[in-house]
Amino acid sequence: METKVIEEAADIERVLEKHAGAGRDHLIPMLQEVQERCGYISKLAVSRIGDHLDLAPSKVYGVATFYNQFRFQPKGKYHFMVCRGTACHVKGSLKVLDMIRNMLDLEPGETTRDRLFSLEVVACMGACGLSPVVNLNGEFYAKVTPKKLASIIKECREEENENEQD
């Protein structure tokens, strides 16, 4: 865990170096690059970017939360992306989303405390023919029903249990 924090800090510093002497118009690119490297925007990132651009942390956070693309918790080991585009909506993606929320006690943008699961809602993944679509760690699941999803989550948990026993 400790090394992860140090790595994150180093990643943030790399972004700052790249934007040396930058003005406030660099705020969004910097947030994007930090998220690219670290997977999320940490408190340290908000504080350091704020110092760098002479912006209060509340301002940096305010801008970052305006955009859906930024998350403020690290991604879990199993990262679910649920499509809430029009086609998926018509095919019942809300029920799928509710299933994940209830099963994992998780809101969009959040990560479970054990860092295993995280949830993200996206507008459209361009796979409307397969709707409703869920993406787990880059892999697409087509025509997902709440029942199907429950078994996917169950599989993830079983995999974890096996890993623990090893």
Partner: peptide, 18 residues
């Protein structure tokens, strides 16, 4: 600047950092 606008649309609120 302890507080600022955060979020967007119906979710917009006045908040501190995080």
């Amino acid at each position: 600047s302890a507080i600022d606008f955060a979020g967007r649309g119906c979710d917009a609120m006045i908040a501190t950092a995080f």
